[in-house]
Design a protein around this nucleic acid. Structure first.
Lengths: 333, 333
DNA sequence: CAAATTTATGTAAGCGCTTTCAAATGTTAA
DNA sequence: TTAACATTTGAAAGCGCTTACATAAATTTG
């Protein structure tokens, strides 16, 4: 693999000059530029990004932490972030934290050790304090889908409370009064917020928010099934079921069908997130759009603007508002 | 950020010694090791991976090229590869090629410029020649889900012909005789192989393989719908439809339902790949398992063994055999 | 106990770049 | 033509590590 030395020799110029034509910021005369470019082409020269990074203290890569590498939600996030950064020649280094404190921590340390120029974190398990410390360091950090007090301008979040509210409201508007709810795990902020919105909608509509109509799941498909079983058994008069994410909605649909309930004729179901597969479900799932792609794009823009000084036209927003995606799993009571 | 200099000074030892305790291969006396470790802890020292890489010519990272960052298929692949490598302290750098020759090429160049120790490529658009050249270079490369002549021990593939055969056979065994097929794009080897297997099964069963029963799609959901429309219109007597991947099967299911056909009562459908969402479909899709995870794991093992000299117990296999996953979209004629 | 080994540590030369600063060259104006 | 300035180039010092190689200390051997 050719190095800059060989190029400089072949072109008959100094190292510095070769470096200059590579980086293109300083002025180099056309004649020497040509010479260097020719030499590069002939040698098939490819700069060593590692050496560049060490010398310049810039890696042109931003670290992205997600919870999992699979699943539509993270797939969408990764895709968006990558697209947005690639446009400007920046790259993402992706790691997975698996919603485990130690593993998230390790993943972040890895990204730091790789000397990423910035970090975009979808961190679920690590503590607020840790994130705060991280943000205070000189490594630029943004947090996706989590609000940490005092870090507002580093956080990009969706209004989960509003989303929960909208889901319930949609069901209420269709005439439903007996509404079940399968929540995410209460230790997660977004799960709590969604539930809070749900309850507010019920209350505002003059419907009593009964705690036993709420089943606490874990955001995975199987707990949707469990929730469905529980609710069906104890409250067979429920006509609408709202799930705190689409995975659980899918599980609930399966369980409902197994119990002989047709959707939405016997039971309406509303999800949350609008992940890709929600339209593969049958019937296609009515859900709340979680603008994860917008979050990702905005986070990427923040980095471009604040770290790479790229001129970005759009304003940078931190709070995103979800909306109802009407499909076929919710109907009139 | 503390450097090795500061650690060496704080511990009262030389650079080399600090480096030694970090890497742990050479012997260091317990006393000095303690001193160094204390100093490291006190300074919160974190080695600079970039500098390490430059000096050692080893990055401990392997590059992974996928076509997309989203979608179950690639999600599964990324997850598996990452898991397998992480166990041994190796990291993956993931890039997306978007099934575009230039972008795949660029992505690979990026991975090379980051000086990955090895490359695992799910390359669809780049030419055989390019891959061959790459494999001949001193950078270790393995290719996933694509067979390149002369590169057999670098390729990890699934027997697509067999898969196509099995899908057709499954339908035939259920008594189907009028069988439609929605193929992947013919320019893709795996699409051709699957189709070849399909035809062989028909022929062996004494069923004529009619070319007009075959619709060429593009592996995306929408072309499944198109294919369904085409077949339904021209050959309403078809009782089973086999799709070259699950996405198209999903599209076909939607179109079939819109046309008033119940699955599998009126029409049986078989997919291919067994991606995650195939069990979310309704009815759950009968499909051919594409052991992409095994491919990924095997590729990772190959790298561990051949690049990092890790002791791997399992033999390394290159050809994987698909099998039928029986669910609910295929029934007796 | 000295010599021969073995083991632990230090010295210094890179790894392939960037970047500051100074020198050389070119250009303009008087 | 020459002084004054702008533009291009080069020399060299890092960036933070690893790793021969050399040296010093500890251990074994006869």
């Amino acid at each position: 693999m050719a190095t800059i030395y060989e190029v400089s020799e072949a072109a008959g110029v100094s190292l510095a000059t070769v470096s200059r034509v590579m980086n293109g910021n300083t002025k180099v005369s056309d004649r020497t530029r040509k010479k260097v470019e020719t030499a590069m082409a002939e040698l098939g020269y490819q700069p060593n990004a590692i050496a560049q990074s060490l010398a310049s203290n810039r890696t042109n890569s931003v670290g992205l932490l997600v919870s999992e590498l699979h699943g539509s939600y993270f797939g969408d996030l990764m895709s968006t972030v990558e697209q947005a950064l690639k446009q400007y020649g920046k790259h993402v280094i992706i790691t997975a934290g698996h919603v485990d404190e130690k593993r998230e921590h390790d993943a972040i340390e890895f990204l730091k050790s790789r000397r990423c120029d910035a970090l975009i974190l979808h961190a679920e398990a690590v503590s607020d304090e840790y994130l705060t410390t991280l943000c205070k360091s000189d490594l630029p950090v943004v947090v996706i889908n989590r609000k940490v007090d005092g870090l507002d301008d580093h956080c990009f979040v969706v209004d989960n409370e509003k989303g929960g509210y909208l889901a319930a409201q949609a069901a209420i508007q269709q005439g439903h009064k007996e509404i079940g709810y399968i929540s995410g795990p209460k230790f997660k902020k977004d799960a709590r917020d969604r539930l809070a919105g749900h309850k507010r909608a019920l209350t505002e509509a003059g419907i009593e928010a009964k705690d036993d109509h709420i089943f606490e799941g874990d955001f995975h498909e199987s707990s949707g099934q469990e929730g469905m079983h529980y609710l069906k058994q104890h409250f067979p008069d429920i006509t609408a079921l709202i799930c705190a994410n689409d995975e659980m909605a899918s599980g609930a649909m399966t369980a409902a069908r197994e119990a002989g309930l047709e959707i939405p004729q016997h039971l309406s179901i509303v999800g949350f997130d609008n992940v890709l597969f929600s339209r593969y479900l049958y019937p296609k799932l009515t859900t709340i759009n979680n603008p994860i792609q917008s979050l990702g794009e905005m986070a990427a823009r923040w980095v471009l603007k604040n770290v790479y000084n790229t001129k970005i036209n759009h304003a940078i927003e931190h709070l995103f508002v979800p909306e109802v995606v009407e499909r076929h799993s919710l109907s009139k009571r």
